[in-house]
Design a protein around this nucleic acid. Sequence first.
DNA 1: GTCGTCTGAGACGTTGAAGTCTCATGTGAG
DNA 2: CTCACATGAGACTTCAACGTCTCAGACGAC
Lengths: 199, 199
Amino acid sequence: MTSTPRRAPSPDAAVDLFGDPVAAAAARHLALAPAASMQELAEAAGVSRATLFRRFPSRTALVAELCGAAAEAYVRAVEGAAPGSGNPREALARVVAALGRLAAVAGLLGLQPLQEHVEAALLARTAQTEDSLRRLARRGQESGDFRVEVDPEWFVSMLTWLLVGAADSVRLGRLTAAAAQRHVAATIEVSLTRVSRCS
Amino acid sequence: MTSTPRRAPSPDAAVDLFGDPVAAAAARHLALAPAASMQELAEAAGVSRATLFRRFPSRTALVAELCGAAAEAYVRAVEGAAPGSGNPREALARVVAALGRLAAVAGLLGLQPLQEHVEAALLARTAQTEDSLRRLARRGQESGDFRVEVDPEWFVSMLTWLLVGAADSVRLGRLTAAAAQRHVAATIEVSLTRVSRCS
DNA sequence: GTCGTCTGAGACGTTGAAGTCTCATGTGAG
DNA sequence: CTCACATGAGACTTCAACGTCTCAGACGAC
């Protein structure tokens, strides 16, 4: 055969965020229907309820695993973007691009209602990462690249929720994924970076 | 008595968003615990479960009413800010201020998982209002006050989700309500308005 | 072929919350 | 005091989803 049978990796690599397609499908459905039952999730994943229970001992475990995987991906995305290295503006651009890719898949999972201890675990997992983002904000402020009026804490919040908003706009069919991602990047950049010079 | 006995209206008037204190307390609790049972909501409101059922025929009805009231308040807040009148920058500032006041109370209610038809009803209720915001964005772009790169659709989304993010930061104790509100206003303004001149 | 493994179908028990109902208590109006 | 009405407490039914289990069929390895 002239065409090689191996599938080309999907253009946005975030698709295989989860090991298996069942988890991926469940996550996709859960993001759209946060209160979905195991029955629904199984149907969405194309397996029987029994099989879903074989893979995940309980609904709680399923949700925790999916959200955990999303948190993990978030951490890896930010780390991969090396927010601590190089020019702050470029580091910021890398971070935003990496997270933008992620948001389409995992953004709305962040809206999942969680048990308190599960949420606490996720927050603990991402605490270091969020801190590296805060440091990036401060670093840029010290270097004169970023506005000093922006509280690093707010920077993290803004980044997070704009990504969620982007994912939601896509869900409602109001923006395409690509456009939403561009808007997030532009908004973050404009609100964080200082105008360096006038024409 | 020298001091008049009538209570001064609370500094942020949004407190009595709902007619009765029971609904207000339930809404407050629901925002923090989206999966709360009627038992929990009743306790949070300081009434018995029976009474809660007397006032709201079902949990669905309760949630729908609270979210509906929030949507209503959103509509009124925007209308009250008259986004269609006057200088676009000032109109924007009015809108952001009005919504900022609202977000502390109702922001996280927007995260409530809803049945599809309930969500559709809320979207229908707010459609006109969102449209007036889009028109404000366009108007500002035509007048040269706002950047033309910002899609009016994204403007609405950004505004919405930054307010949710502000409410969430407050919930997590990471920002004070006042600070969060200021940050939202500043972010919106910076990302939307064009730099008019260079010192 | 046989074996091991995974799966779907579906019955089954359990549980927790929803929603209904009754009754006793309290309180304000007259 | 008496009536009307709202509430709290709690028993009760219903129900949907969870979670467990069994069994039969499919499929690959060998």
